[in-house]
Amino acid sequence: MKLKTWMKATALSVSALFSASTLAEEPLKVGFVYVGPVGDHGWSYEHDQGRKELEQHYGGKVETTYVENVPEGADAERVITQLAKSGHDLIFTTSFGFMNPTIKVAKRFPNVKFEHATGYKRSKNVSTYTLRTYESRYVSGVAAGMATKTNTIGYIASFPIPEVIRDINAVYMGAKSVNPDVKIKIVWVNTWYDPGKESDAANALMDQGVDIMLQHTDSPAPLIAAEKRGVMGIGQASDMSQFAPKSHMFSVRDVWGPHYIRSAKEVMDKDWQPENFWGGFKDDILQIVSINPSLPADLQQAIQTSHAQIKSGEFHPFTGPLKDNTGKEVVAAGYTLTDNELAAINWYVEGIDATIPN
């Protein structure tokens, strides 16, 4: 071989090796889509804490991007598409209303892995993941039922989807288990995050005699309103104790980091498979945090006991017999709803004097 030809071939070989090495060292690109701002101190905030934990865990091996305040619908599809086009290997879409846009975009980008939070539609490259929030809602109900003096607890609900309806039921069942006279009042705000609407809803409930405030929305506004009027409340999705030092009973914290770390590893190891993941007390992905030390000892004990019983598997809130609020049996005695059945609840349990909005 002539020297010039040999040098050219060697240069090409070195270049190919260099390119392969460079590609091998490229970080996994992971994208996140949030329905609210990362500063909501609730749902989106905790997802973003999970994103940061993911980056910290893998260092330079993982690079993340996030887009906040994304409306559910056409805007979501546009944002998800842009993330897929820009080389992201794994994309997490973190709100129920992102479900259809995620499925739609995933069909166009079969080599990208997608995970959608709280939904039920999956495909070859789309997983779903959610929390067993009904576990923490039941504990919240036990606390609310014991603490109420007016026998009236309030719930600020976001949208009438199975997740929210399921959690309202869990709260009421928990409260009813310790207080047979308890009633629940529900206000639907049709938003995940709107501090003004959430505050107005809290005040409307308190005007109706509610003295324990619960919420399925993302800002600390309901707790702040409760603090101003001397009403107790429970924090949602993250530790909200700082916003209502006197009124805060405890918070339920969503801990997403472990799931994000696991999913990223599966993609890097090329063994990611679509799944329907549910995390709860057992996984420590759902936690009871910052129990107010001023609460009566028996109430603190009840919170810890009900948490332990659910975490160990000794008790499941949706084990029958259960009737809906028309008197129809919906769960037979001794039967526990499956995850798929839990994801499709569209009825209120017996005793809730309300109708589910269309």
Score class of each variant (00 low, 15 high):
residue 311 K to V: 03
residue 73 G to S: 09
residue 73 G to P: 06
residue 157 A to I: 03
residue 80 I to S: 13
residue 38 V to P: 07
residue 47 H to N: 10
residue 317 P to T: 02
residue 29 K to R: 15
residue 186 I to C: 00
residue 243 F to A: 05
residue 195 P to M: 11
residue 63 E to W: 05
residue 213 M to C: 04
residue 266 E to T: 12
residue 291 I to G: 07
residue 261 I to L: 00
residue 328 K to M: 00
residue 90 L to G: 03
residue 183 K to V: 04
residue 157 A to S: 14
residue 188 W to Q: 11
residue 101 P to N: 10
residue 271 D to Y: 08
residue 52 K to R: 15
residue 220 P to S: 12
residue 132 R to P: 01
residue 308 A to E: 15
residue 165 I to W: 08
residue 55 E to T: 11
residue 232 M to E: 06
residue 46 E to M: 14
residue 280 G to I: 05
residue 37 P to A: 14
residue 238 S to Q: 02
residue 129 Y to E: 10
residue 205 L to E: 02
residue 18 F to R: 01
residue 63 E to D: 09
residue 257 G to Y: 09
residue 132 R to M: 04
residue 337 L to P: 12
residue 92 F to E: 11
residue 13 S to Y: 01
residue 334 G to T: 05
residue 10 T to N: 10
residue 277 F to H: 05
residue 71 P to S: 13
residue 142 V to T: 10
residue 126 V to K: 09
residue 150 T to H: 05
residue 177 S to E: 12
residue 153 I to Q: 07
residue 91 I to D: 11
residue 11 A to L: 15
residue 156 I to V: 13
residue 299 L to F: 05
residue 296 P to H: 07
residue 97 G to T: 05
residue 162 P to A: 04
residue 109 F to A: 03
residue 176 K to A: 02
residue 129 Y to F: 14
residue 130 T to A: 05
residue 122 R to F: 03
residue 79 V to H: 08
residue 77 E to T: 14
residue 242 Q to A: 15
residue 63 E to S: 15
residue 294 S to K: 15
residue 47 H to Q: 06
residue 321 P to E: 13
residue 116 H to S: 09
residue 208 Q to M: 08
residue 129 Y to Q: 07
residue 212 I to H: 00
residue 66 Y to L: 09
residue 130 T to W: 03
residue 162 P to K: 03
residue 199 S to H: 07
residue 33 V to Y: 01
residue 110 P to E: 01
residue 8 K to G: 02
residue 178 V to Q: 13
residue 134 Y to W: 13
residue 295 L to E: 11
residue 200 D to A: 14
residue 262 R to D: 13
residue 296 P to C: 07
residue 321 P to Y: 01
residue 239 D to V: 05
residue 308 A to L: 02
residue 254 D to F: 14
residue 146 M to T: 06
residue 187 V to G: 00
residue 39 G to M: 06
residue 77 E to I: 00
residue 59 G to K: 12
residue 323 K to Y: 13
residue 332 A to L: 11
residue 47 H to R: 01
residue 293 P to G: 08
residue 354 A to T: 12
residue 330 V to T: 02
residue 53 E to R: 12
residue 19 S to F: 15
residue 124 K to W: 04
residue 145 G to E: 04
residue 260 Y to Q: 10
residue 336 T to E: 09
residue 252 V to T: 15
residue 272 W to T: 03
residue 88 H to F: 04
residue 352 I to D: 06
residue 261 I to W: 02
residue 331 V to R: 01
residue 201 A to C: 07
residue 199 S to V: 02
residue 40 D to T: 01
residue 196 G to K: 15
residue 120 Y to W: 07
residue 169 N to F: 08
residue 117 A to M: 03
residue 272 W to A: 00
residue 271 D to L: 03
residue 301 Q to S: 14
residue 83 L to Q: 15
residue 266 E to K: 13
residue 95 S to Y: 08
residue 234 I to D: 05
residue 306 S to V: 00
residue 347 W to S: 09
residue 260 Y to W: 09
